[in-house]
Simulated assay, not measured.
Amino acid sequence: MPGHISPITLQLIGPQSWTEVPALLCYDPADPFAVRIAFGDPGEQDPADGDEGIAWLVSRELLQAGLEHPAGDGDVRVWPAHATADVLFLHLRAPSGEALFELSRGTVAAFLRHTEALVPTGSETGLLHLDQELDALLSNGGPDAPGR
């Protein structure tokens, strides 16, 4: 089942200026709980080749909640602007630093609607093969796997 990719431009909010940052919002039904935000020029990225530059995995549920009210804690936080209907803030924190972005709430909402059409909320676990993965882990990779 193919996923969904949507280009987006984020505004990196700096102390004295804002910088446009192109990115891709990527959803893969094989990882149904996550949305990948791949930063960089979409024309230079080729997710099929694994060349996606800097990318963050963000919970789809967190993005959905952040459209309506502040959501998240720790490394990823999302909240809507009160003054403008189409503004969403995204705060990312890593050991190397942190960044605050402004992006289009409408673009994120439309992207999330596409992901819902692919995998409705609540049906994600049906796509995961947890029993098979757990069996493989517990058997150390399978019945003939070395190392046991």
Rank of each mutant, 00 (worst) to 15 (best):
L118N: 03
R77I: 08
V76H: 03
P29I: 07
W56Q: 11
L12S: 11
R148T: 01
G14W: 13
H82D: 15
P146D: 14
L10W: 06
F111H: 01
A71L: 15
G106N: 12
G142L: 05
G97P: 05
D31T: 07
V78A: 00
L100Q: 04
F101D: 03
P47Y: 09
E61R: 10
G147R: 03
E68Q: 07
L90H: 02
D144I: 02
L62D: 02
T84W: 04
V76C: 11
R105W: 06
E133I: 08
H129F: 03
D51S: 12
D46A: 13
G141Y: 14
E116Q: 13
A83H: 09
Q64V: 05
Q64E: 05
P120C: 14
L25Y: 09
A38W: 00
D49C: 14
I5R: 05
A117D: 12
C26N: 04
D41F: 00
E52C: 10
T115D: 03
G40Q: 07
H91G: 03
Q64M: 02
A136L: 11
N140V: 04
L134Q: 14
A65D: 12
I13E: 13
P42H: 00
N140Q: 01
E102A: 15
G3I: 04
I37L: 15
M1H: 11
A81M: 12
S17K: 13
L112R: 00
P42C: 00
A23M: 04
C26M: 13
T121E: 08
H114G: 02
T84P: 00
P7T: 06
R36D: 06
D131I: 04
D31P: 00
E68R: 06
S104V: 14
R36T: 10
T19D: 10
L130G: 04
T125H: 10
G53V: 10
L67I: 05
L90E: 00
L57V: 04
C26R: 12
G53E: 11
D86I: 13
D135W: 14
P95L: 10
L112W: 05
F39L: 15
L138A: 04
A55V: 06
Y27V: 03
E102C: 14
D86T: 10
A30S: 14
F111T: 01
P2S: 09
E98P: 02
T115Q: 01
G122Y: 05
D131W: 03
E116D: 13
S59V: 11
V21N: 07
D131L: 10
Y27I: 06
E124M: 03
R60H: 06
E52D: 12
L92H: 12
H69I: 08
S104L: 13
E133P: 03
R113A: 07
I8P: 01
V76D: 07
G141P: 06
P120Q: 10
L92V: 14
A55S: 13
L134S: 14
F33S: 01
T115A: 01
P22K: 07
F33V: 02
L88N: 04
E102Y: 01
W79S: 10
F111K: 00
G147C: 02
D86L: 08
S123Y: 04
P15N: 08
D75A: 15
V76Y: 05
L118Q: 07
D28Y: 02
P22C: 11
P29L: 12
G106E: 12
